[in-house]
Design a binder for these strands. Structure first.
Length: 209
DNA sequence: CGGCGGATGAACT
DNA sequence: GTTCATCCGCCGA
C-alpha cells in the first residue's frame, strides 16, 4: 500500500476517517474486469470501547484478526450468510475499522448486473449487496492491504459530498447507548444508500458537489 | 412504500 | 445451541 493510503487510514479518529472516505473510489480488479464505485455510505466501529464492535473489550479470534492489522488492512467477514467489507483503521493492534455499506457504480456496471441479477439502485445499496455485485465470494483477501491485492482505494479520482448526514448504525444491538451514536455516514441525496426513500433522493446531483 | 418475519450459514460458547 | 455490523418478499394501507 502507498504511504499516502496508510496515512489516510490512521490520521484522525476513525469516525473522521469514515466521513472522509465518502466519495472516494473503491476499485476491484476482478478476473472478469475492473469494477469500481464511489463510496456513498460508511460506518465507523471504535474498537475495544464500542459495545457494537467485533473487537469490543479486546475480543480477538481468527475471524476478526484483520481489525488488529496495520491501517488499510482488508477485513472481510460473514454475517447471515453474506459477506461484508471493512477497512482496518489506526495503528497495528488498535482494532478499529470502517464498514463500507454502499457504492455508486462507475466502472463495470454490466458485470455487477450479471453478478447480482438486479439493476438500478438495488445493485449496491447495502454491504452484502455490493459484495455480491463485485462477485467477492470468499475471505481470501483478508489480512492483505488495500493496494496490495485486487482491492484498492483511489484517492485521486474522488467526488465531494454536498452534505453528509450521520445517523445511528444499522443492524447493531439496540441495547446500550453505543447503538444510537451517530457513526453511520451517508452522502445526503445519493440513491445508492441503504434504507433511503425515493423522496430523499436527489436524482439531479446524486448529492455530489 | 413502509414494516415485519423468515431464510441462512459461519463462528463462537 | 445461539448469535449475528443482512436481504428479500409479502402484506396492508
Amino acid at each position: 500500500m502507498t504511504e499516502q493510503l496508510r496515512k489516510f487510514f490512521s490520521d484522525g479518529t476513525t469516525d473522521e476517517i469514515a466521513k472522509k472516505l465518502l466519495g472516494k473510489l473503491l476499485v476491484y480488479h476482478s478476473t472478469a474486469g475492473v469494477m469500481s464505485g464511489y463510496i456513498t455510505e460508511t460506518e465507523a466501529y471504535l474498537g475495544v470501547k464500542d459495545t457494537t464492535a467485533h473487537a469490543f473489550a479486546g475480543k480477538r479470534t481468527p475471524s476478526n484478526e484483520p481489525l488488529y492489522g496495520v491501517p488499510g488492512t482488508v477485513y472481510i467477514y460473514s454475517i447471515h450468510s453474506r459477506l461484508c467489507l471493512d477497512i482496518a483503521t489506526q495503528a497495528k493492534d488498535i482494532p478499529e475499522g470502517i464498514l463500507i455499506r454502499g457504492i455508486q457504480p462507475v466502472q463495470g456496471i454490466e458485470l455487477m448486473e450479471q453478478n447480482r441479477a438486479k439493476h438500478g439502485f438495488d445493485l449496491t445499496n447495502g454491504p452484502g449487496k455490493l459484495m455480491e455485485a463485485l462477485d467477492i465470494t470468499d475471505k481470501q483477501m483478508n489480512l492483505l492491504e488495500f493496494g496490495d491485492t485486487k482491492l484498492d482505494i483511489d484517492l485521486a479520482h474522488s467526488k465531494t459530498p454536498e452534505k453528509i448526514i450521520s445517523t445511528g448504525r444499522i443492524g447493531v444491538s439496540t441495547q446500550g447507548s453505543w447503538s444510537e451514536k451517530p457513526y453511520r455516514f451517508i452522502v445526503a441525496g445519493n440513491p445508492y444508500v441503504s434504507k433511503v426513500t425515493k423522496r430523499d433522493m436527489n436524482l439531479t446531483t446524486y448529492g455530489w458537489k
